[in-house]
């Protein structure tokens, strides 16, 4: 029955069609470009592999030294490689503190600014404010370091008195937060702006206010991008060197008091590599172990961010 309903149209007259050439053609330019682009990608990957190799090799030297064990490295609270004290915790706690204070500033302010720019600001206001915020990202970190030392620390001393040391993790952390703020703001704003307008219209159409729409519809829809911004910010804070080297202190100190001076992981590497340290001394070898630790921490955070992004994603398309 069905078959009778289908009429096959007649074939076209073969004479009316041009000769057909479908064979593959060599395209030299195409091949060259492809090779060049592959080379560019390979360079960055090879560099990373080289760094891992070098860090690993030198760290191995460190951990093979007499008296150094992994357990001691991660549990002891004193760090004086020259005199045989190999507990990395004081550096870790200092890094955690500066990072924590930086996030205390950068995350709420950065996200709020992003919500303002994406959901509230008029196109005109946005076009003025965004470049200004991006200037903050262009300030050299050494300038931030001196800002911490000469402005933030005196201000903290004014507030909390002399218990605040000249070098302290609070001041370094807060200023680092200001430095990272544009990164959080700009990445979060990208994520918020990428939320389709149709979702906002849906929310407004149901009688949602701007705030309800922004916080309950747009932010959740952009959550994966916002979390990615947060984690990148944490990575950035852990790895930041100049501000903490200048303002947090130059000497390991196992403390949770934000008013005291304490040296971070990066601050230690900067100090040791800046001085005259002989090759193959404990000090020299230790900076590679710490470099590896930093590398591992950031890698872990990046993996975590990928996991979180995949988990919280509210897919809208």
């Amino acid at each position: 029955m069905q078959k009778e309903l289908i009429t096959h149209p007649p074939l076209a007259d073969a004479g009316s069609i041009r000769a057909i050439h479908l064979k593959k053609k060599p395209r030299l330019g195409e091949m060259f470009i492809q090779g060049f682009l592959f080379f560019c990608g390979a360079v960055s990957i090879l560099t990373t592999l080289g760094i891992i190799y070098e860090l690993g090799k030198e760290s191995l030297l460190f951990f093979q030294m007499p008296g150094v064990t992994l357990i001691e490295f991660f549990t002891r609270t004193e760090w004086q490689p020259t005199i045989g004290k190999f507990g990395v915790l004081p550096l870790v706690t200092a890094t955690l503190m500066t990072t924590f204070f930086a996030m205390l500033v950068a995350l709420p302010l950065g996200l709020s600014a992003a919500i303002y720019l994406s959901e509230y600001a008029s196109p005109r206001a946005r076009s003025i404010l965004k470049p200004i915020l991006e200037i903050l990202a262009g300030v050299p970190t050494v300038v931030y370091g001196y800002f911490a030392l000469t402005t933030m620390t005196p201000f903290l001393r004014l507030l909390f008195g002399d218990q605040v040391q000249v070098y302290n993790t609070l001041s370094a952390g807060l200023v680092m937060g200001i430095m990272i703020l544009p990164l959080v703001c700009s990445m979060s704003e990208d994520a918020l702006s990428a939320v389709p307008q149709s979702l906002r219209e849906a929310a407004y159409g149901l009688g949602g206010t701007r705030l309800e729409t922004a916080l309950q519809v747009v932010v959740p829809a952009a959550l994966s991008g916002i979390i990615a911004a947060f984690i990148l910010a944490i990575s950035r804070a852990i790895g930041e060197t100049m501000i903490v080297a200048l303002a947090a202190g130059a000497g390991p100190n196992f403390t949770f008091n934000p008013f005291l001076s304490a040296e971070t992981l990066t601050g230690y590497i900067a100090r040791i590599s800046g001085g005259d340290v002989a090759y193959d001394t404990p000090d020299y070898n230790s900076i590679f172990a710490i470099g590896l630790l930093l590398f591992g921490a950031t890698l872990l955070l990046n993996i975590l961010s990928r996991r979180l992004v995949a988990r919280f994603r509210e897919v809208y398309e």
């Binding site: 389709p196 149709s198 219209e201 959740p220 829809a221 897919v315």
Partner: peptide, 12 residues
Amino acid sequence: GMVFQKPNPFPK
């Protein structure tokens, strides 16, 4: 209230 051209449920 309003219903739009392209279905736009919230990602909820």
